[in-house]
Design a protein around this nucleic acid. Structure first.
Lengths: 188, 188
DNA sequence: CAGCCGTTTCAGTAATTTCTGAAAATCAAG
DNA sequence: CTTGATTTTCAGAAATTACTGAAACGGCTG
């Protein structure tokens, strides 16, 4: 059936992409399944739907919880733990960004701070590169912290009204907006 | 020696983080080495410095080139190919974002478009979720394209002047949907 | 076009990561 | 405390990914 096929494809795709997103196939598929589901699922449901072992699902859920991507949800008259993916997609995006920053940026920033300290005084090319990189990441991090404080609705507004925004940036200075470049037709 | 230790740590850290960044240890270390180096290096230099096999380095460089993270650079009176990491860190960041988008977002957007088409009409929960997700990614992508067109200097200004920026967002309060900009009253 | 110098490919191996089943732990109810 | 239902842990198996050395390739230069 068509409908089933769509779900299968979606789940399969999340599995495939999982590795590029820094999680693994199993975790990707579990998340996809929860994401599409209209009701919370328990681990057994997921085993059935995906054909993984019980323990694999258990590990996957643990991982997803550590990313704050799924929530426990009590179901009455059922002792088993159930899980669901949050409704609000923009919230999910924020969570993802926060978690990736935590895993991919923060450890490097600490390391760079540490090395900058050690390098104290010694003005070599490598040390300059390192502190340049530290500065950059500090700036990005500070910027992120500011954005983090803004309510989701407002950020969404901003993103959706992108044109307004980029015009605004151009307006910061007297630069002439890029003209649409003529495209060269390329017959290959 | 202190200085050597710092470089070693930096390179080691990039190796460790590599897997979280979607590249592997070797590639991470090669990049780190190039990043710190004050002059372009050839593959043999890298083998010596990192203790990898020649072929491993060759693969690594290929990967880095596919990410646009290193550049070939001719060295006179030396037939061997040399490589360097671009100077401008902000450019590097932009490259990274562009490449990650290409690998992590674009394939999913295509898939979601495809599935949305297939789902045509059928108003199930799963289909709604899918098209909601597609919409979100379309918005983000469009926003990204706008940012992409702005010159680096300007974006850096913006990021560094984050406070100005977030004030501005709060000021947009009752934003008027799409189309014409209207003068912002900056009384906030 | 032969010889040299350097690069890339590739099949096999090594290392790492993921997945499983069995056993241990947890917990609610009697 | 005991039972039974559920979840977690973990050692080893399976799968995947990374690395190597040898051989093939490419392209100057005389």
């Amino acid at each position: 059936m068509q409908q089933e096929h769509i779900q299968k494809e979606f789940i399969w795709h999340f599995g495939e992409m999982g590795s590029r997103w820094g999680i693994n196939r199993t975790v990707g598929q579990i998340y996809a399944l929860l994401f599409l589901s209209h009701k919370p699922l328990c681990a057994d449901d997921m085993c059935d739907a995906l054909g993984f072992s019980r323990s694999n699902v258990s590990m996957g859920l643990k991982e997803l919880q550590s990313w704050n991507l799924v929530r426990r949800r009590e179901i009455e008259r059922d002792r088993r733990e159930h899980f669901e993916a949050p409704e609000d997609l923009w919230k999910i995006v924020r969570t993802l960004i926060a978690e990736r920053k935590k895993r991919e940026i923060d450890p490097t920033l600490s390391k760079l701070r540490e090395l900058s300290l050690e390098a104290d005084g010694n003005d070599t090319h490598a040390n300059r590169r390192i502190s340049e990189l530290r500065d950059l990441i500090e700036s990005l991090t500070q910027f992120y912290d500011k954005m983090e404080r803004i309510e989701t609705e407002r950020l969404v507004e901003l993103i959706k009204a992108g044109s307004k925004f980029s015009k605004l940036i151009s307006a910061t200075d007297k630069i002439i907006p890029l003209s649409r470049t003529r495209r060269n037709r390329k017959e290959n």
